[in-house]
Design a protein around this nucleic acid. Structure first.
Lengths: 163, 163
DNA sequence: CCCAAATTGGACTGGGTTGGTCCGATTCAA
DNA sequence: TTGAATCGGACCAACCCAGTCCAATTTGGG
């Protein structure tokens, strides 16, 4: 019941790319720095995202990675399923006649409901919206950075909107 | 993102117990038959449920397992968390200042929302309600069984209320 | 044409989890 | 006391997770 680290990292990558001007190409090393993920491991994550057609890669000098589609058209659910395959809360939740208990197991419906709830939430969160939210936050972050390089950094407790 | 087999089995056990008269004691062998789970493995599941105080065990001859509380007071979420620990969709979702990205990571809130969605659904499903639903189904099932032993079984498509 | 930059694709690993089996110890009722 | 029943592990194979590392390939530029 927990997403893998790789999925988490993939989401960071996608949000980072989405917050850039469309079709910007970013080197792996830069992504590694931005997401705080080891370059070696990140390359595996990136490969999976490429294979899932969520990003495109450009090899060679001056190469890098870029979103393959509009950030508004990619949801958190898309990224998650690219990394982990389809969300299936219980083994018996799938199309087709895979589970013969399905017809009578009273829990089946609840699992299905819970799964629908989760996919609804994740499917509604687009990379574009997350990137926009990140921009609002990174503005604060930028302020902080600037201040640190100049004056003592004490605005940490200023953040009252974790929401 | 998938519950373990053990959790699934635990839910079957709990529903079975909940569908019996209150504080009935059931032997492991019977539970094994009812849930279609190997006795050896089931014993591990049962032990965990006992330790979580969801069921009580009676040793010795005539012993067995029984619900430790009212079936209405135990939710699917309770059973799940007894088996797998607290639901935590992403590593960074927990109380306390565990994740320093939390303050700015824009995905954090979505994970939290998805988690709330899932716990809402699972927390609302009580063993009592599931057992009641099972009774309704087993009634149909009973009919079917009777029919099969007598006349051709064709009432399958009668169930139009998956809801 | 060749070099350097960059991705690609896979091998490898250590550690943990999963799903399962098995058995001796313990407890209790008859 | 004996047999029914749970208890509490040990044990196992197989798989997944997270991460590292490296050689091969591709590409742009001097």
């Amino acid at each position: 019941m927990q997403i893998t680290r790789a999925s988490d990292y993939a989401v960071r990558v996608m949000i980072h790319l989405a917050s850039l001007p469309p079709s910007s190409t970013v080197r792996q090393s830069e992504l590694s720095k931005a997401t705080e993920v080891s370059g070696h491991f990140l390359s595996k994550v990136l490969q999976q995202l490429v294979r899932a057609r969520l990003i495109r890669s450009q090899r060679g000098a001056g190469g890098g990675y870029a979103l393959a589609a509009s950030a508004a058209g990619i949801s958190l659910l898309d990224v998650l399923e690219a990394m982990e395959g389809p969300v299936r809360l219980n083994q018996c939740i799938e199309e087709g006649p895979s589970c013969d208990r399905k017809s009578w197991c009273p829990a089946h419906q609840v699992w299905a409901e819970a799964q629908a709830a989760i996919t609804n939430v994740l499917g509604a969160a687009s990379m574009a919206s997350l990137a926009a939210r990140a921009k609002g936050m990174s503005y604060e972050l930028h302020e902080k950075t600037v201040w640190i390089s100049g004056v003592p950094k004490k605005l940490k407790k200023k953040r009252g909107r974790t929401n």
